[in-house]
Design a binder for these strands. Structure first.
Length: 494
RNA sequence: GGGCGGCUAGCUCAAUUGGCAGAGCAACGGACUCUUAAUCCGUGUGUUCGGGGUUCGACUCCCCGGCCGCUCACCA
């Protein structure tokens, strides 16, 4: 936008501010005193507050002027509140002052609580003051912001104009604090492990690479917290968790963001069955606390969070949804032709484990709407690198992935604590051709050699959990400021 | 990275076959002392994402570029 257009947009608001200043009443004070009534509070406590004087502040959202009296709504952190401005009550000068306000201005009002003929709780203003000028107009009052890009880039506008968006981020905040409380109450210690790491690990993702000048070294932004948290288990902190950002230098999708928030927790002397029980208990309890129900609507389906959740082995899942018995088809070539027979797609050069994964993601995952622990993954299934083998079936690992609404929310194992098996599997993985596998983390193996108790652990994608709980269909709806390409044409004042 | 779609007033969107770029909201002027998408009268704000081309004439067609979205690939 060029300067002339900006002037056209900004000029009337500047002019009105000058006119308002000229009236001689107070304007733009440095404080309004934090002891304010909240909109929602006034509505909730109407009986008690009716006829009393209250002090409120917020952003002017809508105004209906009718000559010598007007109605308006302000928005504060608790919601909207109707205000009534009457010339007879305010006096001529203050009413002129009110008429010079613009939608979007932040105002403070003192007045008396009453109810209109239509029954809406309202504050009749006896005093009004402009607290902050909005030099720019708000988004369309009826449609809000339609362009998702604008919602992400200028989240403040989205929050001002969309109750749905405000709700989603309050839910997000609630989820994080309730999870903290749940784990704290059960003796888990919240810790912080490095984000800048000399080696990356705990997953097979491509990392962001950066450069630490002072030590003249390459550093990576973490892709997972796992390997450091397990060092803490070795160190004797028997229950630890971390909630923080992981970073993956990969394509985005509605389920993938380059930075996302992960909960990882580890519990010594537990296995993956204990972790399942903890996970379903925690998530159902948190859901109940946040939404007041365990029935969550997502994608026009009702998801029931009440435990116990379904447990389904990979073998049973593939048998049920793809009608292939992977225990009977143990050979890569045979499995490949079975997959072709049912018309699913698979890469011709995938390993056996990778073929199973492709089958699971195309045939099984979309069917897992109700909370489901998919368990007992083949040892060469991608992502099983850090999972311990089953004693009775060394070709399988004690691992589960949690699915809700067809989305993978978490990944968990009985942690592999045998250093030799871990070393061999890391070395094999690091030699896989063309794949994004981390170097063998010798420092981590050294820790395991000191002895790690049997441990169960899980990673849960909190952004995705929030997607389910808020009915969001894109992970960006759950991230306040998702990364977007920088724009050069940002329109600011000259 | 590939394919498809989109980008027009501050906001939400129209514009026929290629023929004067429009409406609602917001804004501005006026009326209105219980409105709530207030209403009524009046005013039209523009580098049609950027650059190039075809044409008498381009929002429209072609080429290049930008950004966004969907989708595929990738992503344990």
């Amino acid at each position: 936008m060029d300067v002339v257009e900006q002037e056209n947009q900004l000029k009337p608001r500047r002019r009105k501010l000058e006119e308002l200043k000229a009236l001689g009443l107070p304007f733009l004070p440095n404080t309004y005193g934090p002891e304010l009534h909240k909109a929602a509070d006034i509505q909730a406590r109407f009986e008690e507050l009716e006829g009393t004087r209250v002090r409120v502040a917020g952003r002017l959202m809508r105004v209906r002027m009718m000559g010598k009296a007007s109605f308006a709504h302000i928005l504060d952190s608790s919601g909207e509140l109707q205000l009534y401005f009457k010339r007879d009550r305010l006096g001529d000068t203050a009413y002129e002052y009110f008429k010079l306000l613009d939608i979007g201005d932040i105002i403070g009002v003192e007045g008396t609580v009453f109810k209109t003929r239509t029954g809406e709780v309202t504050v009749e203003a006896e005093d009004v003051v402009l607290l902050a000028k909005s030099y720019r107009s708000l988004p369309d009052k009826w449609h809000g912001i339609a362009d998702p890009e604008t919602r992400y880039r200028r989240r403040y506008l989205d929050l001002i104009s969309s109750e749905e968006s405000r709700r989603a981020f309050r839910i997000r905040s609630g989820v994080v604090s309730r999870i903290r409380r749940y784990l704290d109450e059960r003796g888990f210690l919240e810790v912080e492990t490095p984000i800048l790491q000399p080696l990356y690990g705990g997953g097979a993702a491509t990392p962001f690479t950066t450069d630490y000048q002072s030590l003249d070294m390459t550093a990576y932004l973490r892709i997972a917290t796992e390997l450091y948290l397990k060092r803490l288990i070795v160190g004797g902190f028997e229950r630890v968790y971390e909630i923080g950002k992981d970073f993956r230098n990969e394509g985005t999708s509605r389920k993938h963001s380059p930075e996302f928030t992960m909960l990882e927790f580890y519990q010594a002397y537990a296995d993956y069955r204990d972790v399942m029980a903890l996970t379903e208990s925690m998530l159902s309890e948190v859901t109940q606390q946040i939404l007041g129900t365990q029935d969550v609507t997502f994608d026009e389906q009702t998801i029931d969070f009440l435990p116990p959740w379904r447990r389904l082995t990979i073998r049973d899942a593939v048998l049920q949804y793809a009608e292939i018995d992977i225990d009977a088809v143990r050979d890569r070539e045979a499995l490949y032709s079975e997959i072709q027979r049912i018309g699913a797609h698979a890469h011709p050069d995938s390993s056996y484990g990778k073929l199973v994964e492709e089958l699971v993601s195309s045939k099984v995952e979309p069917c897992l709407i109700q909370p489901t622990f998919l368990c007992d993954f083949p040892v060469d299934f991608p992502g099983s690198l850090l999972a311990k083998r089953r004693a009775d079936r060394p070709d399988l690992t004690e691992r589960f992935e949690l699915y809700i609404g067809g989305i993978e929310l978490g990944n968990a194992f009985t942690e592999l604590n045998e250093p030799e098996d871990q070393r061999q599997r890391m070395e094999e993985a690091s030699h896989l051709s063309g794949e994004e596998h981390a170097e063998v983390d010798r420092d981590f193996l050294l820790a395991l050699e000191h002895g790690m108790p049997p441990t169960g652990g899980a990673g849960i994608g909190l952004d995705r959990l929030v997607m389910i709980l808020t009915g969001s269909h894109h992970i960006r709806e759950t991230i306040l400021f998702p990364l977007l390409r920088q724009r050069e044409d940002v329109d600011v004042e000259p």
